[in-house]
Nucleic acid binder design. Structure first.
Lengths: 175, 175
DNA sequence: TATTGTTATACTCTATAACTATA
DNA sequence: TATAGTTATAGAGTATAACAATA
């Protein structure tokens, strides 16, 4: 082989190391599993008639009602223009009401309906099912280990707890 | 409080358990981290002028050249119609060539160019950087533990090693 | 008749800007 | 003037169907 004659005396051959299989790469595995998790959660949520994004809003309203659309948008990292449509859908499904905002006549105070309050525990149940399904291969001790490691990764990456980075922060706006 | 008078004698109150914070939910953490991983890898790849999807194709061609577009599409779970545009882009960037397929005049044999062969190790380097960045908070032992747990999850979920579920399998086609 | 590559069309998402009514 | 909500437009991405060349 040519390499024997040309590269010697401790020279590092220019051959690159063989590429690691993607199965050995945490970032690829996380991407794969994250996407799969989204798909499964979406499928478990579909029969309940809500999307993951809508769930995020309902969840936030559950313990702090009366927020304005703008406040919700800022907290969840969704653009205010998009929030209009999301609230429209939730309102049509009877899960949310637009009421008067006490101190600002431009804003709407978004409130959960009783139907939404009935629905939320069932959505949490779907999330339980999603977790159980995903972790089926792990015993309790391994589940705890995994959870801790994932939390450390999320903290290290600067991810805000409970906020999905899938929606960009507010854009540049107005030239 | 009404609950004291109405629910007693060991009746389980209808109050649902308080919802677990999303930070405690593996499926949410995986979704968060998977999305973040995609973003970071995309950002590290941008200066090299390729997307993650293009990288997947180049990677596959690196050790099995001469595949047809259809074969590539099937192996990666991308629709054949989409593959046309992806190969178009790769060809325009001079990373791939469409040659004659030896045994079928309908098909194209896709081959890497030398430019692509020069590029690939640099993309693998970007993946290394992505992994290192993501795992910065973990020592080597914890990294190994995490990798093993993620692999077990991926296996349990039936994910195909190296194939990202982000692209649906081939649709129904022709009525 | 079935398959490979290709193109065209519709539909969904998202990003951006601009409008209105209030502040 | 700035802000909350809304609407409109354009752009990416995807899904589906249909077509020409070849099998």
């Amino acid at each position: 082989m040519a390499i024997m004659g040309v590269y010697h005396l401790g020279m590092t051959p220019p051959k690159h190391p063989p590429p690691r299989h993607l199965r050995e790469r945490p970032s690829f595995l996380l991407s794969q599993l994250g996407f799969h998790s989204d798909q499964r959660f979406g499928a478990l949520l579909a029969p309940l008639g809500v999307t993951a994004r809508q769930f995020g809003i309902l969840r936030l309203l559950a313990h702090t009602a009366g927020r304005s659309q703008q406040q919700l948008a800022e907290e969840l990292g969704i653009h205010r223009n998009v929030m209009v449509g999301v609230i429209d859908d939730l309102e049509q499904r009877g899960l949310v009401e637009r009421r008067r905002y006490p101190t600002d006549r431009r804003a709407h105070a978004i409130h959960l309906t009783d139907a939404a309050r009935d629905l939320l525990p069932r959505v949490e149940g779907a999330l339980d099912a999603c977790d159980d399904e995903l972790l089926a291969a792990l015993d309790p001790a391994d589940r705890t280990t995994l959870l801790t490691l994932l939390q450390r990764l999320a903290d290290g990456a600067g991810l805000v707890p409970g906020i999905h980075p899938g929606y960009d922060a507010i854009g540049s706006e107005e030239p």
